[in-house]
Computed example of a mutant assay.
Amino acid sequence: MQQPTLDRMFLALSDPGRRAMVERLSLRPATVKQLAEPLGMRLPSAVKHLKVLEEGGLVASRKRGRERTFRLQVEAMRTIGEWAHSREAAWHAAFDRLAAAMQEIDEEERQS
């Protein structure tokens, strides 16, 4: 996965409304209206948000007649999960260093 693609995914997820749409789509495909209503969002705004999600590779749409249905791109979510998992070791190492430094400070204070 190239970094710009991951950047677009995180950009798409940076908005709470778009994250709510992704949550809804994780349950089942939905139309623009079904995604907009619970958020109190007007249809043109919802379409713009969905375009960002689509450009980020997080959702795909399909038009049948006059209705456009969106669905979650599960592979994109896996990509984000794999990225987070790869960072997990670095995060644990950083927390281990922090814990060791805090223990050193605590020991120095007890000796003073």
Rank of each mutant, 00 (worst) to 15 (best):
M1W: 01
T5A: 07
L6T: 00
D7M: 06
M9V: 04
M9A: 14
M9Y: 07
F10L: 10
F10R: 01
L11N: 05
A12T: 02
S14F: 09
S14Y: 06
D15A: 10
G17L: 12
A20P: 07
V22R: 06
S26N: 07
R28V: 11
A30E: 08
V32R: 08
L35V: 07
A36D: 09
A36W: 08
E37R: 00
L39V: 06
L43V: 15
L43R: 13
L43C: 06
L43Y: 13
K48H: 13
L50V: 15
L53E: 15
L53V: 11
E54P: 11
E54Q: 15
E54T: 15
E54I: 14
E55S: 06
G56L: 11
G56D: 15
G57Y: 14
G57C: 08
L58D: 13
L58E: 12
V59I: 14
R62H: 12
R62Q: 14
R64F: 09
R66M: 12
R68Q: 10
R68F: 03
F70S: 11
F70A: 05
L72E: 03
Q73T: 01
Q73C: 03
V74S: 12
A76D: 03
T79D: 05
G81R: 08
E82C: 03
S86R: 12
W91L: 14
H92M: 09
A93Q: 08
A94L: 12
R97L: 15
R97T: 15
R97A: 15
A99K: 03
A100D: 02
A100S: 03
A100R: 00
A101E: 09
A101D: 09
A101V: 03
E104Y: 07
E104A: 14
D106K: 01
E109D: 14
R110D: 01
R110I: 00
Q111A: 15
